[in-house]
Amino acid sequence: MSINEREIILEARNVTKVFRTSKGRPLLANDSVNLTVRRGETLGIAGESGCGKSTFIRMATMLDPPTSGQILFRGQDVSGLRGEKLRAARRHVQMVFQDPGEAFSPRMKVKNIICEPLRNFGLISRSQVRKKAEELLAMVELPPEYAERYARDMSGGQRQRVGIARALALEPELLVCDEVTSALDVSVQKRIVDLLLKLQREKNITMIFICHDIALVRAFAHRTAIMYLGNVVEIVPGRQLGISPCHPYTEALRNALFDLDMDFSKPIEAIESEAPSPLDVPPGCPFSGRCGHCSDRCRTEKPALRDIAPGHQVACHLFD
């Protein structure tokens, strides 16, 4: 069955999140985001700091409610859930963080870190912790004796494996990986990526993979959403990422990459200027102020995402 026929696990419909600054100014962190993730699929989300990817996953993991719009989890609207219903729903969406060293209590043993979610939901008794921890450690290819260790005594790669074991302990429907490899050395990064791929193959795990490295996203994700200033500007099937035609911002990301296959005799093409603050999102296209193709229309009329090829959507007036 092709991915497009599979069950939709998570769907974001016109999800908007507005924060207020201390002075009451609205900060548009997510502007009408529409995304879907299907069973067994990895959706990559790429973009630079401030693009709204963390805001989006806080809503996708039900940590924050959207200001408007809906988050549907297996067809059910979870954006308004509260109390016990919210807690029960959260069980199905688990997260792995960028720095597992920061995410774990320094006073907990690995077995308790891994099994804490199971204990929270009353799924195992205290006497079962050690055995369950060993099973989960085996799944992430760590030796059983690590159950009695503390996270601080482990390397970054080992801690990230513990983070994955903990996130998968509840057998979630959706695993959200937030820059899980960016704090790691490149050889360790590859091993973590290989582990996630293996687990996805074995367990048909659905993933959202947030990553600023577009070369890694391209290799890892079935589809990738590119975000800029709170907007999804492109959704592209995996390997086509950064291959023209694409959104001018995606092209800028691709050109700015120090890729081992690049032509080193040419100066790297870097867009000058910095992204505007999300407090000052320009009217019209969010990228208009930095785009080389910007026309009058781009400054006033915001382009919508539209299909330019099967599975490939771009929000840019150039594709009209």
Binding site: V186, Q200, A215, R218, A219, G238
Partner: peptide, 18 residues
Amino acid sequence: KELLAAIPTMEGEVYVDQ
């Protein structure tokens, strides 16, 4: 060699069936 093999590139191998 190991370092080079671990670095994903825009024209390199993709890890999933797409």
